[in-house]
Simulated assay, not measured.
Amino acid sequence: MSRLTKGRVLIAAGSDPSGGAGIQADIKVVTALGGYAMTAITALTAQNTKCVFDIHSVPITFLRKQLELILDDIGTDVIKTGMLHSGLVIDVIVDVIQNKARDIPLIVDPVMIAKGGGCPLLDLDAMQVLKDRLIMRAHLLTPNLPEAEYLTGLAINNLDDMYHAAELLLSLGPSAVLLKGGHLLSETVIDLMVTKDNLHEFRSPRINSNNTHGTGCTLASAIATGLAQGLSMKDAVSRARKYVFTAIATAPRYKTAGYGPLNHVHTVIENI
């Protein structure tokens, strides 16, 4: 991998003080894959690997200022959203995109519930705003199965259900949907990517590991980096899945109360 930084990625998401997910993971991922990470923090969280205990929202006017100043100065090649938590936050993101980044590819990771539980990461009254204003503008939507169930109202228990849910998610307006199948209990993890004209299955063996904190944030940011670097959607997803697979396989295995962190820097270590 080239040591030259290439590909600007602007991430709007919440902070995770444990370092495994959220903005902290996003920065690690983009940097480890050779991109340039920029951030607009939507909220501070009090959490560890076990649970999200509390959320402190960033003032809406301050969030807008973060986004606008970055776009007016450095610019970006891709925008990626993570935890947005309220309708007001989603409205600001959409308004700024419409005014300053209408043609920039948008990756939407619809973060709703932390893996370990605790405070919901998306207010219930924000769900419709997410559908009506943000998802319809997405270049790629990256839900896991619980998130897809919330968005579609379907129970997803098998691969056929995944196909049905992916098509329903596509009808919400995104250009592409990557429905992640990791929550299905099987030896092979299957992710479905659907567009208006194509469908592709990505498969990988399951790693039996408890070190999976932040896998959704990590995968979406890795895809965003690939797109910012000029990869096709399929190649960006393929590279991102391989990156996450190795990050789980080589996780540091810290003794934690919940789901342990990934090894986000495995690409860096390989090149030392």
Rank of each mutant, 00 (worst) to 15 (best):
V78M: 07
M127K: 11
K50I: 00
L84I: 06
M127C: 05
L124F: 06
K180D: 01
V108G: 01
I113Q: 09
I97V: 07
G116S: 10
Q128K: 14
L130T: 04
L169V: 12
K115V: 01
G153K: 00
H183K: 12
D161A: 13
L170D: 09
I135L: 07
R133M: 06
M136Q: 15
K65R: 10
A101V: 07
T188S: 09
L145D: 03
D161K: 04
H183V: 15
V92F: 03
L154H: 00
I79A: 01
L88H: 05
T76H: 07
T61R: 10
Q128C: 03
P105K: 13
I55A: 02
E149D: 08
L178Y: 09
A176S: 15
G153H: 04
K180H: 09
D109R: 10
G75V: 08
R64I: 00
G181H: 05
E167T: 14
T188A: 10
L84Y: 04
E187K: 12
Q66T: 09
A176N: 14
A126H: 04
L170F: 13
D54F: 05
L141W: 10
M162Q: 14
L172M: 15
R64M: 04
D95S: 12
L121V: 07
F62S: 15
K50V: 00
A165V: 12
L145R: 06
I90P: 03
